Amino acid sequence: MISIKELSKVFYTKDQNVRAVDKLDLDIEKGEIYGVIGYSGAGKSTFIRLLNRLEEPSDGSVTIDNENVTQLNKSKLRVARQEIGMIFQHFNLLWSRTVYDNISFPLEIAGVKKEERKKRVNELIDLVGLSGRGESYPSQLSGGQKQRVGIARALANNPKVLLCDEATSALDPETTDSILDLLVDINRKLGLTIVLITHEMHVIRKICHRVAVMEEGRIVESGNVLDVFLYPKQKVTRRFVDQVMGDPDREHSLGLINETYKSGEIVKLHFIGESTNQALISELSRAFTIDVNILHGKITQTQKGAYGTLFVQFVGDKEEIDRAITYIQTTSVQVEVNPDE
C-alpha cells in the first residue's frame, strides 16, 4: 500500500545542515495501523509530513497505492492529497466555522455538490460521535471533541490513508483512549490504512499492528508490536517498552534485584497470549522442591494479544532449579535466566 524507499530530508541552515530523515526504507500494508515512535528530535514529524509532501523530500520516493507521490506536479498532488487524510496534534480547525462547516470545507474545495456534501457531513458527524454538535463552534468543544472534528474532516473525501501526527499528545489519558478506540473502529469499518506517529508507547500498544522505532532520522527497529515488546533489541526501544510495563528505570531495577537477591537464580518469565492465564507459579511450587519468590511483574494488552513479564527468584538446590527451568521451557511461557542489560 505504502512503499518508502531511501527517503531523506535535509534542512539547510547557515550554521549546519540537519538531516532530519536519513535514507529511510519502510513498507506499510493496506488496512493496517502502523505506528512510528520516537523521542523529540527523532525525525518522526518530518517523516509523516513527507508522506503527503507537506515537506518536500531531499531524496528518495514515497509510493501510495502504486502512485509515486514524490514525482507528482502541483496539480496532480492536490488531487492525490484528497486520498490522504491527516489529523494534527493541535487540531488545526477553522475557529470561525461550525463543526459542520469544518467537516464540509474539504468537500467544498473538491467541488462536491451541496446536497452530497450535506449527506456526507452528517454521516461523518455520526461516525465520530458528535451527533447534535454540528452547529457548535470549536471554542465550545472539549479537546477530544475537537480532535473528533479533525478526524471527520480528514475522512471527508474518503481517503485511502489517514496520517496521524501526534493526534493524542494534547489530550488527557481518558480522552486519548476514546480517540484511539475511535481510530480502531474507523480502521475496522472502513478498512483504512492508518499511519500514526507518537512518543507514547501506550498508543502503540493499544491500537497498532506493527511499529517502527525512529532515532536520529533512522528506523533502528521495527516489527509486530508484540514481537517488539517481547524482544526489544535497541536501548531506545527498551525505554519505550518500559513506559508501558511500569519500569521506566529498568537498568537500575535489574541491578537492584540482582544485588538484593544473590542466592538461587533470578528468572524473567514472558507470558504471551493464553499463557497469561497459566497457573505456572503454583505448578512449580508443587512439582519441584524449590522456593519461588515473586519480585516484580505486569501484564498489558496489545492488538496481537496479552503480554506479561514476571521476575521471580528460585531458591533451592541448583539441580532442582535447573529442572524447574527446563520444565518452564516445555510450556508456552518463555524464560530468561539472570536477565541483565
Results as ranks from 00 to 15, higher is better:
residue 117 R to L: 04
residue 143 G to K: 11
residue 139 S to I: 13
residue 34 Y to F: 09
residue 192 L to T: 08
residue 205 R to A: 06
residue 225 V to A: 09
residue 45 S to M: 08
residue 329 Q to S: 06
residue 292 V to H: 14
residue 232 P to Q: 06
residue 327 Y to R: 02
residue 93 L to C: 10
residue 314 F to S: 02
residue 321 I to F: 04
residue 251 E to Y: 13
residue 277 N to P: 02
residue 33 I to F: 12
residue 313 Q to G: 05
residue 314 F to Q: 03
residue 151 I to L: 13
residue 71 Q to G: 03
residue 43 G to Q: 00
residue 41 G to R: 07
residue 309 T to F: 13
residue 123 E to H: 05
residue 102 N to T: 06
residue 261 Y to S: 00
residue 210 R to V: 05
residue 295 L to E: 11
residue 324 A to V: 05
residue 6 E to L: 09
residue 179 I to W: 10
residue 125 I to T: 03
residue 291 D to E: 15
residue 179 I to F: 11
residue 309 T to I: 13
residue 166 E to P: 02
residue 215 E to W: 07
residue 2 I to K: 13
residue 9 K to T: 05
residue 178 S to C: 04
residue 325 I to R: 11
residue 104 S to M: 11
residue 180 L to E: 02
residue 301 Q to P: 05
residue 200 E to W: 11
residue 4 I to Y: 04
residue 131 S to K: 06
residue 73 N to I: 12
residue 312 V to E: 05
residue 243 Q to E: 03
residue 266 I to A: 03
residue 249 D to E: 14
residue 176 T to K: 01
residue 189 K to A: 08
residue 267 V to K: 09
residue 121 V to H: 03
residue 300 T to W: 08
residue 148 R to P: 09
residue 241 V to L: 02
residue 272 I to L: 13
residue 331 T to D: 08
residue 260 T to I: 10
residue 305 G to Q: 14
residue 193 T to Y: 02
residue 248 P to I: 01
residue 113 K to G: 01
residue 77 L to A: 09
residue 224 N to S: 03
residue 224 N to W: 00
residue 334 Q to F: 11
residue 228 V to E: 01
residue 21 V to N: 04
residue 194 I to W: 14
residue 225 V to D: 09
residue 115 E to I: 05
residue 100 Y to M: 07
residue 203 V to I: 07
residue 102 N to Q: 11
residue 105 F to T: 05
residue 108 E to K: 14
residue 252 H to L: 14
residue 316 G to C: 12
residue 1 M to C: 12
residue 309 T to W: 12
residue 257 I to H: 10
residue 169 S to W: 12
residue 226 L to W: 00
residue 171 L to A: 02
residue 8 S to G: 09
residue 75 S to Q: 11
residue 142 S to C: 10
residue 181 D to I: 13
residue 59 D to H: 02
residue 93 L to H: 12
residue 283 E to N: 08
residue 177 D to P: 06
residue 239 R to E: 01
residue 5 K to C: 14
residue 268 K to C: 14
residue 310 L to E: 01
residue 204 I to Q: 10
residue 107 L to F: 15
residue 78 R to G: 07
residue 70 T to E: 10
residue 248 P to T: 01
residue 68 N to K: 02
residue 51 L to K: 06
residue 144 G to M: 13
residue 277 N to H: 06
residue 211 V to A: 04
residue 181 D to T: 12
residue 163 L to D: 01
residue 273 G to E: 10
residue 231 Y to L: 15
residue 340 D to P: 01
residue 308 G to C: 14
residue 159 P to K: 01
residue 5 K to D: 07
residue 209 H to C: 02
residue 272 I to P: 05
residue 53 R to G: 06
residue 86 M to G: 07
residue 185 D to R: 06
residue 227 D to G: 04
residue 81 R to F: 03
residue 175 T to W: 08
residue 110 A to D: 06
residue 226 L to K: 01
residue 55 E to Y: 15
residue 229 F to M: 15
residue 8 S to M: 10
residue 180 L to T: 00
residue 288 F to R: 10
residue 53 R to L: 12
residue 119 K to I: 07
residue 315 V to Q: 10
residue 221 E to Y: 08
